[in-house]
Write a protein that binds this DNA or RNA. Sequence first.
DNA 1: TTATAATTTTGTACTAATTACAAATTAAAA
DNA 2: TTTTAATTTGTAATTAGTACAAAATTATAA
Lengths: 141, 141
Amino acid sequence: MKAARYLVELGIQPSVQRIAVMDYLLTHKTHPTVDEIHQALHKSIPTLSKTTVYNTLKLLSEYGAAIMIDIDEHNKRFDGDTSPHGHFQCSSCNRVIDIPLDNGRELFLSEVDGHTIASVQLLYKGICAGCKAHNDKTKQN
Amino acid sequence: MKAARYLVELGIQPSVQRIAVMDYLLTHKTHPTVDEIHQALHKSIPTLSKTTVYNTLKLLSEYGAAIMIDIDEHNKRFDGDTSPHGHFQCSSCNRVIDIPLDNGRELFLSEVDGHTIASVQLLYKGICAGCKAHNDKTKQN
DNA sequence: TTATAATTTTGTACTAATTACAAATTAAAA
DNA sequence: TTTTAATTTGTAATTAGTACAAAATTATAA
């Protein structure tokens, strides 16, 4: 998917900065923080300010081009994949991992109890498989 | 449910402050913020510090006596109801409302893709029924 | 009871993520 | 080109949450 075209399709003016942020989200499935995006793009766009990254991510979220994930205690995280899926954050390595929804897709409704739903998030926290394996190996009980 | 006894059952020393916070959570289903709890309890316990409210809520969360809800942009919110259910926040009035899980209970698992799950949250955002009705009446298109 | 140790609470200082805002820059329209 | 609008930038301000050590309270034991 070409980031620039994607923005235009959604009615967003495709500035250099916006294209860069959108492209980063589409090519990095790591659910990055504002800081991570800013640091990564700073190399190719040295003048890029953090405020612009904030502004752009807010804009992308409003236009449905990205999702803000509320799973991290300390930072907002963003996802360019807007299809229905859940997220898991490991409390050890802090990574955020996608959780496919086999049977939970019906939770992504547009209405519940008379309330109009604009967004749905399914958030899991715990210890990821990788950290668990590493801990088992390290402890050697 | 008596707050003091509940704390003892969970192995938490039932200090005056902890009982007050626990009791507040059990008697107010409003998913209050730290500030709301502090302000409410300040009347009966004038010396209560906000740090103690933070400490207590952290403790209660760790012992499974309360749940921290990550739905609010600006504040942590807490819930004394630890049974599986979802939450909805209205972006107009900011209230957080319980969402019963008719068919989503199976999402509250203890393991997914090899990751060990410690907590699950199902979060909805949008416009609540009350605000929707009020808006419709106000606009009068 | 009294002395001692452990726990809990409190208040202040600090941290850090996010936002507000206005100037500067860039792009679009006339 | 000139004017207008939109976007970006950097700094300052805000504010929720945490760290930390002193003070107060509670539990333990002599």
